[in-house]
């Protein structure tokens, strides 16, 4: 299905190690890693997580051209962001690490220091590792597993179902949109970007949205009825067909994410008990 590829999601579970883990394991491990990346300013941790991310990425055999495109985009935005940080505060590193070893003076206000370069690099890694882990997560989970995983961390199941239903019906809606667009083109609507300006095209796309919304509302009514008739919303709890029992792999990963959790707690406690002088760990 071309569309799910474009949407970057998997509908049919894959066959790799990460794919085979249960939704619970995937969601919990992912959320804990993200939490770790948020609290930690330690380059060693960031590098380790990035390495994990890269290994994970390779192991799930993703759609490389898409990954490449997305990575380049993220890299550029990230670099631009770092540049802006430097522009607003060239002495950014001093606040985070202490010390200011000037390497190059550019003007009265602007200079480059070793500390700033280092701090910016840490920020860069923080961002890129978050991106890598997220990408890896999206590539190895199906919407149903996501719903089951979220349910396992006590998210109400109605919310979880909304998540998986969205993925269920997005391709349908996209197909409707495509059909409506085609019929409008045949009636003479010009949607070719070379021939029509951006705003004219935007206006025409809005015109197409009208029938799309109406037909989607009809569908929502039918879906709601179908769910009611099969007992959705009856009890406080629910089970998941797509959520298999804990396997040996899941148990191994459970140890990993529990260690991660312990690490996060240690970092937090460390900060409270013995607050470090500076936020960022530095190798010197």
């Amino acid at each position: 299905m071309g569309l799910t590829k474009r949407l970057f999601i998997k509908i049919i579970p894959g066959k790799t190690f990460l794919d085979k883990l249960s939704g619970t394991t995937k969601v919990r491990f992912f959320l804990l890693l993200i939490l770790l990346l948020i609290v930690s300013w330690d380059l060693r941790v960031l590098l380790a997580v990035s390495a994990l991310g890269i290994i994970g990425m390779i192991s799930v055999k993703p759609n490389w051209p898409l990954v490449r495109g997305l990575t380049i985009f993220m890299l550029l935005t990230n670099l631009f962001n770092l540049f802006l940080i430097w522009l607003t505060n060239p002495n950014y590193g001093a606040d985070l690490t202490g010390g200011c070893t000037v390497l190059l003076v550019l003007s009265k206000h602007y200079f480059i220091s070793a500390e700033t370069l280092f701090a910016l690099f840490v920020r860069f890694m923080k961002f890129m590792s978050t991106f890598l882990i997220s990408l890896c997560f999206i590539q190895c989970i199906t919407p149903s597993e996501m719903a089951a995983g979220l349910y396992s961390i006590k998210v109400p199941y109605k919310v979880c179902t909304v998540v998986s239903l969205a993925f269920r019906y997005i391709p349908d809606i996209a197909r409707d949109f495509e059909n409506i667009k085609i019929s409008m083109q045949a009636r003479g609507m010009e949607l070719d970007s070379k021939k029509v300006g951006f705003f004219a095209r935007l206006k025409q796309n809005i015109l197409i949205l009208m029938p799309l919304i109406i037909s989607s509302f009809d569908r929502i009514g039918n879906i709601a009825n179908a769910m009611d008739l099969r007992g959705f919303g009856k009890g406080k709890k629910r089970t998941y067909y797509s959520e298999h029992e804990e396997t040996k792999e899941d148990k191994i990963m459970k140890v990993c994410y529990l260690l991660t959790a312990a690490g996060i707690v240690a970092i937090m406690i460390g900060r409270i008990v013995a607050p470090p002088e500076y936020k960022m760990w530095k190798p010197w």
Partner: peptide, 25 residues
């Protein structure tokens, strides 16, 4: 089409069982 709420055949067939909290096994 609209009444197919699962993301796979198995999941859709299981939908009412899930709501009845039937264990997966």
């Amino acid at each position: 089409d609209a009444q197919f709420v699962g993301l796979s055949v198995g999941e859709d067939i299981a939908f009412s069982l899930e709501n009845d909290e039937v264990p997966r096994k």
